[in-house]
Amino acid sequence: MDNFIYTSTPSRVIFGQGKVSTLPQEAEALGVSKCLILCTKFQIKEAEMLTKLLGDKAVGIFDNATMHTPISITDEALDLAKSLNADSVVSIGGGSTIGLGKAISFKTKLPHICIPTTYAGSEMTPILGQTVDGKKTTESHPDIKPNVVIYDVDLTMTLPVEMSMTSSVNAIAHAVEALYAPDTNPIIQLLAQDGVRALASALPEIKTNPLSIPARTKAQYGAWLCAICLGSTKMALHHKICHVLGGTFNLPHADTHTAVLPHALAFNAPATPRAMELLAEALPEGKGDAVKGMNILLEKLGMQMDLKRFGMKESDIEIGVQQTLSNAYSNPRKIEEGPIREMIRRCWAGEPAVQDL
C-alpha cells in the first residue's frame, strides 16, 4: 500500500428521521440564543418551521439566498444579521442557502448550524464558492465548514424528483473526483466508493417511488459520504468546468454538474486505472467499465444533459474554454485546449461523452 496522509475535518453530524427537532438543543450547546435563519424564497415555509422550533432563540429570517452566492446577496444578509444582533446563522436548503451560511459565518465567525434539504453536499466541505462580477471564485479554509449539520430525511421528502436526481449526480461527481485526486487516500476512496454505491442504488427507487423513506435515507447517507470526499481532497477538471460555466453563465449548479460529469469522467479514465476499478465496483451494471456504468445510471434516471436549455449560447463555449484553461485545477490527465473545447461543446449540446478526445 502506498504511503498517504489523511486529515480529518470533523464537525458534529446528527443523522436520522425527525432529528430537526434537536435544533434548539444544538443551539443551546453552541451557546447561541439569537439565530438568523437563512433560506431561499422557495423555502420560507421550512424557515418558519425552524422559527417555531427555536422560539425566542430565532431573531429573523433572510429569504434571499441565491445561486452561486453573489457577494451582493451576502452583504445584504450581513447587514440584516448586524441589525438584529444575531449571534449565529441557521441555513436550511441546498447549496445556495448553505453557501450563504458559510459566507456569513466565515466573515463574522458566527457559529453555523446547517440543515440540508438536497443531496449536493456543500454542508460537509470547508470550501466557499462566491460570484464576484460574474466570475465564480473558490476559497478553502477549515473555518468555512459548518459547526453542526442536521440530516433529517423528512425534509427531503418533498424534493422534486428531477432535483433529487441532479442534486445526487452532483454528489456523485464529488466522489468520482476524490477517487483520483492527487491527495486521495484509501480512507477517502472507501467513502467515495460507498457513497456512489448508495446513491446509485437509491436513485432509481426514488425516481419510481419518491416517497420511499428507505431510499431517501440511503440517498442522504450516500450524499453525506460524497460530501466528505469533496471536503477532503483537491478538485480537478470536472469542478473547474462547472465553476466556470455555472458562475459565468449563471447556470443551475446541480444541472451543470450532471451535464459535465460523464465527459470529465471519460476524459480522465485512461489516466486513472485504479480509480476506474473502484468506481466500476460501485456501478456494477457497467460490468467492469466505470464509464459505461455511469452512462447506464444516467440513462436509467432519464437525465437531460444539455446546457443550452438554460440559456447558454454556442458562442459562450469559447469563453468557457479560455476560462477553464486559466488557473487550471490539478488533473490526472494533461489539459489541452482542443479536447476541452469539444467537451464543453458536447455539454452545451447534450451529446454523449466520448473517450477519444
Rank of each mutant, 00 (worst) to 15 (best):
Q322G: 13
I335K: 07
S91Y: 11
L225Q: 07
M1P: 12
I188E: 10
V354A: 05
A219H: 00
G121K: 02
K313R: 15
S168N: 04
G246N: 03
I172Q: 02
I241H: 03
E314W: 10
C39W: 00
R345G: 06
L230A: 10
K234F: 14
M305I: 03
A353R: 00
A171R: 00
I340K: 03
N250H: 11
K41D: 12
E139T: 13
K300S: 14
L298S: 00
A349P: 04
T131Y: 04
P262M: 07
C347N: 09
P210T: 08
E46V: 11
I213G: 04
D154Y: 03
G195E: 08
A47N: 06
S167Q: 02
L301K: 04
E342W: 10
T166G: 11
N268Q: 07
I228L: 14
E28Q: 15
H239Q: 12
G293N: 00
V132D: 14
D194S: 13
A173D: 00
I113L: 05
A202T: 09
L307C: 07
S315H: 09
V244I: 06
I98K: 00
E177T: 03
Q220P: 07
T74P: 05
L159R: 02
P210H: 04
E76C: 14
E351F: 11
E314D: 14
A175Q: 08
L199D: 05
I319V: 15
I187W: 13
L155M: 04
S72L: 15
K287V: 06
S232A: 14
Y119R: 02
V32F: 07
T66C: 13
L38G: 00
Q355T: 15
K34F: 12
P210L: 05
L325Q: 06
A65R: 07
T118G: 01
A202R: 02
S212A: 14
H141A: 15
A275K: 01
G350D: 05
C347G: 09
A47C: 11
L307G: 05
G16M: 02
K135R: 13
K34W: 13
L128Y: 00
I150E: 04
L357A: 11
P214D: 06
E162C: 03
I5D: 15
